[in-house]
């Protein structure tokens, strides 16, 4: 056994897992607020990362300004997407809504390939030091930043949902749209806000991954990796999303470790989460923290 490698991969899994957790959280946010399963979550990461990359390289903006402009852009983008595409779909069957988001996903994926090409593009360097050593392990400084950002976002979510007026409005809408409306909450605004927040948070994750690995269309695969995470945690649980993300991140890295040292099957890194997904759906479809849906006629 190579303990160094295992420890390194576990650490990677933890860091990538928190990123999955952040993306999963923004996925759950949309699902909770507007009952839409967003198959285009990965494209939010992609668009955010490309927008930031474009601002930084084309206009030579400093990172902070480029990053803030990206967030503004993603807010507008999220709201427009909800108003133009998703609002007409309210009240349609599940399959129609799912298909619309799938359509959005392939549309934006192709658009991004067309605009920016298929090759991975590196971000301009942001930090002086590329990597720091913690307890004998090599850790990319960007990864550390991503860990900090992820935890900050999670804390912000926790505050938003428990203490802020809009967060409470969103929870009320998630609980029962009609009751929320009769209490004077603008359900339309809540939906738009959910999409905007989700787009912004995903874009942050996208920029972080882009800074580490370069921006490429592979980013949109995060949107697919989100599914094992949210199903494991329970579709409508924010806490579950975070935990699910971390578990999936750890799982794929540990699967990768056993794959490369003992089993030599290849590709377990990509596929292991999907086997887990099937198993969970078979034995506990509502996940660890999801609400059980009891149907009455």
């Amino acid at each position: 056994m190579q303990w160094d490698l295992l420890l390194q991969l576990t650490l990677n899994g933890l860091i990538v897992g928190t990123l999955y957790g952040v993306v999963a959280m923004s996925f759950v946010l949309i699902y909770k607020a507007s009952q839409v399963v967003n198959f285009a979550q990965g494209e939010f990461l992609l668009i955010g990362a490309w927008a930031c990359w474009w601002l930084l390289t084309e206009f030579q903006l400093p990172f902070v300004w480029g990053f803030l402009l990206t967030l503004v852009f993603m807010t507008v983008f999220g709201v427009l997407l909800q108003v133009i595409v998703l609002r007409p779909m309210i009240g349609e069957p599940v399959i129609s809504v799912i298909m619309v988001t799938i359509g959005l996903s392939i549309f934006f994926q192709a658009l991004m390939k067309w605009m920016f090409g298929v090759f991975a593009q590196p971000f301009p360097p942001i930090f002086e030091t590329q990597a720091v050593r913690i307890a004998g392990l090599e850790v990319q400084s960007v990864y550390l930043l991503s860990l900090v950002i992820s935890l900050a976002i999670m804390a912000a979510f926790a505050w938003f949902f428990t203490a802020s007026k809009y967060g409470l409005a969103m929870r009320a809408t998630a609980f029962d749209q009609q009751v929320a409306q009769s209490l004077g909450i603008s359900v339309r605004m809540v939906f738009a806000m959910a999409w905007a927040i989700s787009a912004v948070v995903s874009a942050v994750a996208g920029v972080v991954v882009g800074v580490v690995n370069g921006v490429s269309s592979g980013l949109s695969f995060y949107g697919i990796k989100v599914f094992p995470a949210v199903i494991l945690g329970g579709l409508d649980s924010v806490l579950g999303a975070v935990l699910g993300g971390i578990i999936i991140g750890l799982l794929e890295n540990i699967a990768h470790f056993f794959d490369s040292t003992i089993l030599h099957w290849g590709n377990m890194f990509q596929i292991a989460p999907f086997y887990v997904l099937i198993v969970i759906l078979m034995i506990k479809p509502y996940g660890l923290f999801g609400t059980k849906n009891i149907e009455r006629v």
């Binding site: 595409v85 298909m99 619309v100 799938i102 359509g103 959005l104 392939i106 549309f107 192709a110 658009l111």
Partner: peptide, 8 residues
């Protein structure tokens, strides 16, 4: 892109 747009 057309496939995506047509579906939507």
């Amino acid at each position: 892109m057309t496939i995506g747009a047509v579906i939507i």
